[in-house]
Structure formats: structure tokens, C-alpha cells
Design a protein around this nucleic acid. Sequence first.
DNA 1: TGTTATGATTCAAC
DNA 2: GTTGAATCATAACA
Length: 337
Amino acid sequence: MDDQPRLMHSSHGVGMAGHPGLAQHMQDSTGGADGEGRKQDIGDILQQIMTITDQSLDEAQARKHALNCHRMKPALFNVLCEIKEKTVLSIRGAQEEEPPDAQLMRLDNMLLAEGVSGPEKGGGSAAAAAAAAAAGGGGPDNSAEHSDYRAKLSQIRQIYHTELEKYEQACNEFTTHVMNLLREQSRTRPISPKEIERMVNIIHRKFSTIQMQLKQSTCEAVMILRSRFLDARRKRRNFNKQATEFLNEYFYSHLSNPYPSEEAKEELAKKCSITVSQVSNWFGNKRIRYKKNIGKFQEEANMYAARTAVTATNVSTHGSQANSPSTPNSAGDTSPC
DNA sequence: TGTTATGATTCAAC
DNA sequence: GTTGAATCATAACA
């Protein structure tokens, strides 16, 4: 780095101030014997550069040193830098204008929404919470699945951040390495600070691409996890026998109006160790299936009606309250819906 | 392995 | 938001 200004500007009084370049330099010098001598100098230098690879290492080192000390070297470097600069700009030109990356924005938004990037949302995602709520929100199995989901999401989050950190570190290390290398090489090659800056940008862009791939694969992992979690909701587990008994008991004892109130649903849910949503589902299914095939359910209806009658008798005998949950309608009806 | 039973989901109507 | 109806997915059973 320290050498750069030394290389770019002549200290030999050749008249390079204001960065005029070799052409300008030559134009200023045309005509006299001095101009002829300089042309000869340039020819010599170019010849030496062209043949340097044919020489032995020691010879090449000696020649390199001689070139570095040559009074025309700064002027030549300036010209080569200018040519390189113009060539690179004309080649890249429009290519360097990048449109804002919509895909990257989408990925960032998704990672943020899922709680993978950004601040941790209490160890889980809003999506998981919503899914858990939709699933009936609160059974023991469900909360276990939810915590499992959160644990796995946390794992993904951890891996994502570790990888991201690793990439950033690697990017910084590589950038520093390349910058040092280019600065070192700028002693012997025409490399301008602008070019180094451009190279750094290229490296950053490459690492951004890698980061995007990381984000993409993280998103995919979250999607897979989420779909597995949502699929798990569909896994059907039959209610235990006692729960079905409670539900049927209520249903057949309120056959004329099998629509439990919210309180009754809560009470049944508690008794059956299921959620209120499950109670609602059960009654929804039961009503429709009963209506579709009354004959098939007749035996069941009779059995529960008999049970209810026995319970009612016991209640009147012992003067105690019935065991079945409260209802807006009278118990013991047998007329369907 | 096919059939039935059953819990869950979706969607339209209210 | 609740309900009925259709449907899906899976457990249970013959």
C-alpha cells in the first residue's frame, strides 16, 4: 500500500504530474533528441518485459529490480493502469448495474417471519403457534409436538447463524488476503486502488450469492419442518372409551337438541380430557352421521336412553343432581334433531 | 388387504 | 362464529 503512490507518480522529474499518461508524455517530448531517446527507452523496457520469462530466476529478479528502478516505469504503469481501467469499464459497463434482488428480500422476510433471523420470538414462531391453535390448541400431545417443533426450529436457527458467521468470517479473511495480494502485486503489475476496490466488490458479491444459498436452504428446512408439523395434526387418535361414553351419553340424552352450550362443551372437554374444539367436532360428526343412518344408531340410542333413565331414577331417589353436564334443553329426549 | 369407524378439515350458508 | 355436508386420513377390525 505504501508503495502505491510511489509507483503511480514519478519522482524522477519526467513530468507525470497531473497524470498525463505516456501519450501525453510522448507528445510533450516529440521532436528533440531527448524524445528519440525516450522512445528508445520505452522500446527497451517493453523488450525487457517481453523476454523476462525466458530468463533464469536470478536474471529475472535482477531485471525486475532494474525495471522497478527505471525512470520510465511510473509513466508506463500509469498508462497501463489507464488502459486496463478503460478496458474493464467498457467490458463490464452495464453488467455491474444489479437490480434489487426480490428473491433475497423474500427469503429475508420469510426467515424473519419464522423467527430464524432477527430477534428470537420466545423460542418459536408465530406460524407454529397459529398452527397449534388451529389444531385444537392445547391437548397434551399437541403441546408436546409444538415444543418439538420449537426445538427443531431453534436448531435450524442456530445452524443458520453459525453458518452465516462462518461465511462472513471467511469473506473478511479472503477479502483481506486478496487485498494484500493485489497490493503486493501492484509493485510489479499495474494495479490501481480502484481495481482493488472493484475486486473486493466482486468477492463480496460472490459471498452474497453463497449467503443467499444458505438462506434458501434454511427456508427449505423450515418449510419441511412446518409441513411435517402440520401433517402431524392430521394424525387421528381415537378418544378413549370413557370419553366416547361421556359424549354419547350427552348426545342421546339430548337427542331432540344435541347442541351443547359452550359451558357444556367445556365441561365435556374436561371430563373427556379433550379440547372444546374436539367436542365440537365430535358433535358435528355425530349429528350428521346419526341423521344419515338413524336405524344403525337405534340400538346405541336405546342403550344410552336406558342408562339415562336409570341415572334419572337414581337422581330422584337420592335427591342428588345428575352427572351429565348442564344444557339449555331438557334431558331424556329421544326425538332426533 | 379391503372395509368400516371415526376424528379432523374444508367450505358454503346463516 | 356456528353448523351441516362433503371429504380426507388413518385406526381398527374381519
